[in-house]
Simulated scan of single mutants.
Amino acid sequence: MAPRKRKFENRDLPVGLCCKMVRGQQRFRYRYPSGKDIFFPLKTQKYEAIEAATIFNAKHRNPALKMILDHDEFNKPMSHWIKVVIERVRNEELNTRLLSKGRYRAFVNDTMRLDELLGDILSKSISLQHVNEFLDKYASGKSNEVYNRKITFLKKIFSYICDMSGMVLNPADRKKRKPKQAKQRKRLNIEYFNLILNASNSWLNIAMRLSLQTTHAVNEISLAKYKDCEWFNAPIVENGLTVYGVLRIHRQKVQNKEASRVEIPITKQLKKIIDDSKRDNIASPYIVHALLGRKKGLANGLTHPTQLTPVYISRAMSDLRDELNLYGNFDKPQRPTFHEIRALSIFLYDKMGIDPQERAAHTDAESTKVYMKDHVKWVKIQPAELVI
C-alpha cells in the first residue's frame, strides 16, 4: 500500500516530521519508524525541528548507512555474545576453580534473563538505558546487596564482550551502586539455639552442632564427608585437649585463598557429633545426611541421594524456629538463620579467650602454620571445643 500523500504545508519537512495544531498552538511532531509519536517542546523553531529530524533520519532511516553499520562483524545481537561469554566463563573460571559451581549457575541464570530482555539488541547499541531496564526488571524492590550484585554481573558480562570487540565501552561502569545496608538479622543467642537444637530432627541436630563446633557456615557443613576425617592411630593431647584426628574442610567463600583449606582437630565434642551422625544407619558419605524420598530426582549440584543442599538445611532450621515461635516479634528478614550459628560460635569461643580468626598454629620449631599434603596447602587449627 502506497504511503499517504503529505499535506501541502508539510511538503518541505523531513520524513516523519509534520506541523500540527494542538490546543490552538502550532507544534512540531515527529513519528518514529516504529509508529510512536513525540511532540517537540513549545516554541521550537522550524529550523530546529528540521535539523533534529534530519540528523535522526540520517542514522535510522538511511539504508546505505544501515548497510555500513551491519558490515561491522563484531556488532552482533546480544544473544550471540551471551553464548560465547558463558562458554568462556565455564572454561576460564569454572574449570580452573576461580568460580564455584553455585556461582556459575547463578551467573548462567542471570545471562538467561539478560538474553530474554536484550537478546535481540546489537551489542554496540547497548547503553546505560538498557542497564537500567535490566535492573528495573530483575532487581527492583530487592535489597541493595542484590541490586549491586546485578550491577556486578552486568559489568562482568559486558567486560567479556568488550574484550572480544563486541562493545566499545562497558555501560555498566557508569551505573552507580547502592550503599551497603546495615545488617538486619538479629543475633542467635545460646538459649534459643538450644531450644531449636533440642526440637530438631537427627540430621538438623548434627548440622547445627557441627557448625557451632567448627565455626563453619552451612556451605561447608553440607559438603563435609567422613573421608575428610583422618583418624590417628592413638589419641594425642594438644592444648590440654584429647585429639583423635583431624577434619579437613575446604572453605567455599574463599576457596582460592591460601587459608581456604583448614585442618580442624577432632576433639571429644567433635568426635561425638561424628559418631552420633552414624546412629541412623544410613549409608552415606556425608556427615550431614538424610533419606528424603525425592520424587523429582537430585537437585542441581548434588551427587548422592542422601546429600542435602545448604538451602534445605538452612530452611529447615528457619521453619523450626518459626514453629517454636522464637523471634516471632521480628519480621522474617530480621530473624536469625542457620548462618548466625557461625557468629554465635565465634562469640562463645571469644568468651573462652580463644580468637577463632587466629586459631592457626604459629610457626615455630615444632609446628608450622601451613603445610603441604598431596600438593595442597593446609592450615593447621589449634584444638578448641565448646561444651554446651
Rank of each mutant, 00 (worst) to 15 (best):
K180N: 11
T54I: 10
D115K: 15
I82G: 00
H130N: 10
I157K: 01
Y138W: 12
A53C: 11
N62L: 08
K76A: 00
S165Y: 12
G166C: 09
Q184M: 13
S125K: 15
K150C: 01
K175Q: 15
I126W: 03
E51R: 12
Q184A: 14
I157H: 02
K156L: 14
S79D: 06
S79Q: 08
K142W: 05
M164N: 05
K156A: 04
S140K: 15
R174N: 06
S125N: 15
R177G: 07
R97F: 10
A53I: 02
Y138E: 00
G141P: 01
R90L: 04
L99W: 09
V84K: 13
W81E: 00
H80N: 09
P63R: 07
N109I: 11
R90A: 07
L117C: 09
K156M: 14
V146R: 06
T152H: 02
P171F: 11
M78C: 10
A58M: 08
L154H: 04
K180R: 14
Q129N: 08
D72A: 12
D163P: 02
L98A: 07
M164G: 01
S140F: 13
C162N: 04
D120T: 14
R185K: 14
E87L: 10
K178H: 12
N75P: 04
E145A: 13
M67C: 06
M164Y: 10
G119D: 05
F107W: 06
K176A: 15
L135N: 05
N91Y: 04
Y160D: 02
L94H: 04
D110C: 09
F56W: 13
K175I: 10
K83W: 07
W81C: 03
R187W: 11
R113A: 06
K83E: 12
L114V: 03
K142T: 15
W81F: 06
R177I: 08
K156P: 02
S159R: 13
R113E: 07
I68D: 00
S143N: 05
L118G: 02
E87C: 04
I126F: 03
R174E: 10
L154N: 01
S159L: 10
K101V: 12
K155V: 05
P63C: 10
A139L: 13
K101I: 11
L188K: 00
L154W: 09
I50Q: 14
A52Q: 07
R149Y: 05
H80A: 06
R90Q: 12
Q184S: 13
Q129C: 04
A53T: 06
V168L: 09
E51W: 09
S165K: 13
Q129Y: 15
L154F: 09
N109V: 05
L69K: 10
R185D: 03
A182N: 08
N91F: 07
G119P: 01
I86N: 11
N109H: 11
F107Y: 15
L114S: 01
M167H: 02
K59W: 08
S165D: 14
F107Q: 02
K178E: 05
T54L: 13
D173R: 08
L114R: 08
K137D: 03
K59A: 07
G166T: 04
L169C: 03
K175H: 12
N132Q: 14
S123N: 04
S159Y: 03
A53E: 09
T96N: 11
F158W: 06
A53M: 10
E133R: 12
L154A: 05
A139V: 04
S165R: 11
N148Q: 07
M67K: 15
K76P: 01
F107R: 00
A139P: 03
M112P: 00
M78E: 01
R97Q: 12
S123F: 12
D120W: 04
